[in-house]
Design a protein around this nucleic acid. Structure first.
Lengths: 147, 147
DNA sequence: TTCTTTATTGCTAATGCTTCTCACTACCGA
DNA sequence: TCGGTAGTGAGAAGCATTAGCAATAAAGAA
């Protein structure tokens, strides 16, 4: 609706993405993911965004999540099968431990992609595009509680 | 319907799982996954199983997939977000490269779980239950085709 | 500024995988 | 033979995500 914006082409983060527009909705969604240093799912983004733009539609959230992912601004995570989570794409490779008890997500850095690329992919002549590690278990607290 | 069976308790592969029964349907589903050395999704299991038991229901497939997973007979894989795949649980830890071009799945062995456990989980005092690596890219053929 | 093109939005319906419900059946031990 | 209960088949329901479409607004040109 109100879409006073600047072209995506002119943003500093990304080279030329001709044809795309930086609308208020898109900027807001990106901002929410950027600010909240965590892992949001589509519905959380939607709920937060509606506080600023009440008329925003859920479709728009999903569409922009896909767009921002393709553009490389954000990353899609798969902690569980029910739905996806999103985070800002950072330069350093990192992965996540998801606690089955409390749901907490613990991040850690590990050069997995490079390791696999060197030890496996090269031997198989496989060009790796994306690497995602999915680990579940129990954090200290939940472990102690014996659950 | 026809459930001439023996209790799961008496199967050689698994210790005592009291209360559970090894029905024809369950045995068939397990057999299909065991024989076809590949990665079947629920629908493929369903289609194949119906050739032997035409009255089998899709619900039964899903229910048994979950049961067999919990019992540790099969493993659930997540190559993509659309749906799950299943394979027989093997002793050796292995992972998969999924080709975005032709859909081929390439298996490889790598002691990832142990590595992460030693280098990360212990430091964070995190008890790892499950480790799944998800890698996508292009196999030799698809890479050469420039796609 | 105004015009034109077309990406984007909001709404709603649809999709597709998976789970749930429920009445019925089959097994097991007593 | 009987009671308790796991399992089944059929269809409905759940739920995250996508698609269709008319209306709107961004970006560049005139």
């Amino acid at each position: 609706m109100s879409t006073n914006s600047k072209s995506l082409k002119s943003t500093r983060q990304e080279p030329g993405v001709s044809g795309l527009r930086m609308t208020n909705q898109r900027a807001l969604i990106l901002e929410i993911i950027r600010q909240r240093r965590g892992h949001l799912d589509a519905d959380e983004v939607y709920r937060q965004a509606r506080q600023k733009q009440p008329r925003l539609s859920l479709s728009t959230v999903y569409r922009n999540l896909q767009t921002l992912k393709k553009l490389g601004f954000i990353e899609e995570l798969h902690f569980n099968e029910e739905h996806h989570h999103y985070e800002i794409r950072l330069a350093t490779e990192h992965h996540h431990l998801a606690c089955l008890g409390c749901g907490r997500i613990i991040e850690f850095q590990y050069p997995l992609a490079r390791l696999i690329k060197r030890n496996v992919a090269e031997a198989k002549d496989f060009e790796v595009i994306d690497t995602e590690l999915r680990m579940t278990g129990y954090c200290t607290e939940c472990h102690q509680e014996g659950k």
